[in-house]
């Protein structure tokens, strides 16, 4: 994918050079537009390389830090870093790695997810990757700032990519509230879930055909 993007400017110029003069003049506005797009693509590729360098110290710190490695699996750490790089680069390029075209809102959402990830790292002090204070089963346990940021980033990610997951989680909480006798909470959640299910959220984040779910395709 990257080599092709790098080839685009040369290809656009070559195409123009080889075109007959009449045809070239006729097509000037379109070829200029193509050339400008190719210049932008190439410049964005360059900026992605800068971004890769920017994230490298974070990747190195986490993969080399035994304390962090012992908390989560390597898979989680790698997925976390890969996700940070992947989503930010997708926001810059305006399309996902599997080719889906993102809307402006989709791109902004990617940047929000990325910013929250970085905030979570910063708040965790880079050395103690803690999402909560105290034991997991301790009633006095509180969620740390890093935990809150991580949860928020997860939520923004899920909203864009897995709306059905949100719907299922709302159902689970609704059932739990009903079983505990919190009827007003349960009916409120039921109403939110109905609104959520009707919203075609993916259309806000992806362009045209890419917004369709697998079932619709």
């Amino acid at each position: 994918m990257v080599p092709l993007a790098h080839m685009q400017p040369d290809r656009a110029i070559m195409k123009e050079k080889n075109a007959p003069l009449g045809k070239m003049l006729k097509n000037t506005p379109e070829s200029t537009l193509e050339r400008k797009q190719a210049i932008m693509e190439q410049a964005r590729d360059g900026r992605l390389e800068i971004l890769k360098g920017y994230l490298e110290p974070i990747r190195k710190f986490i993969t080399e830090n035994r304390a962090i490695r012992s908390i989560g699996s390597n898979v989680l750490n790698d997925a976390f870093l890969f996700g940070t790089y992947k989503q930010t680069s997708e926001a810059i390029r305006g399309r996902t790695w599997d080719g889906k075209q993102l809307t402006a809102l989709g791109r902004i959402n990617h940047l929000i997810v990325h910013a929250l990830y970085l905030y979570a790292i910063k708040e965790s002090g880079m050395g103690v990757w803690e999402f909560y204070n105290g034991g997991w089963d301790d009633p006095g346990t509180t969620i740390t700032k890093a935990g809150t940021a991580y949860m928020a980033s997860w939520f923004f990610d899920v909203v864009q990519y897995h709306p059905n997951t949100v719907s299922n989680i709302l159902s689970l909480i609704e059932d739990s509230a009903r079983k505990r006798g919190y009827e007003s909470v349960a009916s409120g959640l039921h109403s939110i879930k109905n609104t959520w299910d009707k919203a075609t959220l993916q259309k806000l984040f992806f362009k045209k055909e890419d917004a369709k779910t697998e079932e619709e395709k």
Binding site: K36, R44, I92, G94, R107, L111
Partner: peptide
């Protein structure tokens, strides 16, 4: 010149 404002503002931040 037509570049994307969202992306460029990201770099400012």
């Amino acid at each position: 010149l037509g570049e994307d404002a969202d992306e460029l503002n990201f770099w400012t931040e």
